[in-house]
């Protein structure tokens, strides 16, 4: 493990997608400005894993994540980023209980971000079922919309789901709050708001990241972005 001070960063460069050397991944994790806050040391006491919902169901332990990162074994850390850390439910019970004030959940979040922004192989598989959410969040900033609740996607949610998706427009209209009387977004989002959101995504590398890791999705999104920009700019 390098003893040199790591340069801290606020975010990763999406143009470094593909840089997956184990040492550079560990360096990226340790360089995150939040790293110093999420990990201080470790007493190996087991409070985090004892509190952890995923520890009960998966081969996953926040204690092992912390210990592995602290060990400085870059290859072991990289192996974890492939699948292991994606079991975390991000509930932050570990962070609330850790006697060292570590945040194992926060550490996992940094590792996930690095895994995605470096385009690690497993990420493509992990993100696949996420496409619909990503499309919504990138285009309007909502993560869930009424029209996403469809029986095809949620057959396990039971016999009332078809009710929810039939005559949706009318049922949404029957919600007595004007902004909610829509189906393709969670509420009416003004075009100006989406326009501003696109600037944020552009300036923070999010669009560029999506372009690199999911070109098909990016194509759909960029069409929507262009249309909206044209509309807004021509109305000025």
């Amino acid at each position: 493990m390098s003893e040199e001070a790591v340069m801290t960063h606020l975010r990763l460069d999406p143009d470094n997608v593909g840089e997956q050397d184990a040492e550079s991944l560990l360096e990226a994790i340790k360089g995150d400005v939040r790293y110093e806050e999420v990990i201080h040391g470790c007493l190996n006491c087991g409070v985090c894993s004892g509190s952890c919902p995923s520890h009960r169901f998966f081969d996953y332990s926040p204690r092992i994540v912390v210990q592995t990162v602290l060990s400085g074994d870059a290859q072991a850390v990289k192996d974890m980023m492939d699948e292991y850390i994606w079991a975390c439910a991000q509930c932050y019970t570990c962070a609330m209980r850790c006697p060292f004030h570590n945040s194992p959940g926060g550490l996992v979040m940094i590792m996930r971000e690095v895994a995605v922004w470096r385009g690690m192989e497993a990420v493509h598989r992990l993100l696949k079922p996420y496409g619909r959410v990503l499309l919504k969040v990138l285009s309007i900033g909502n993560q869930l919309t009424p029209d996403m609740i469809q029986p095809d996607f949620f057959p396990d949610w039971g016999p009332k789901i078809p009710w929810s998706s039939t005559d949706l427009a009318i049922k949404r209209k029957a919600i007595p709050v004007y902004t909610l009387q829509v189906t393709t977004s969670a509420w009416r989002v003004s075009p100006q708001t989406s326009y501003e959101l696109y600037t944020i995504y552009e300036e923070t590398g999010v669009f560029r990241l999506i372009e690199q890791i999911d070109p098909n999705l990016y194509e759909v999104v960029s069409d929507m972005v262009e249309d909206l920009r044209d509309t807004i700019e021509s109305s000025r």
């Binding site: 006491c45 087991g46 894993s49 004892g50 952890c52 332990s61 019970t93 209980r97």
Partner: peptide
């Protein structure tokens, strides 16, 4: 060996929740 994560009560008895960090995992 395992620091107790929390104590709750089940059927009138306290229940300890934690991880046996050396042998048996979550309990």
């Amino acid at each position: 060996k395992g620091r107790i994560a929390e104590v709750t009560e089940q059927h009138g008895r306290p229940v300890l929740k934690g991880e046996d960090t050396l042998v048996r995992g979550p309990f």
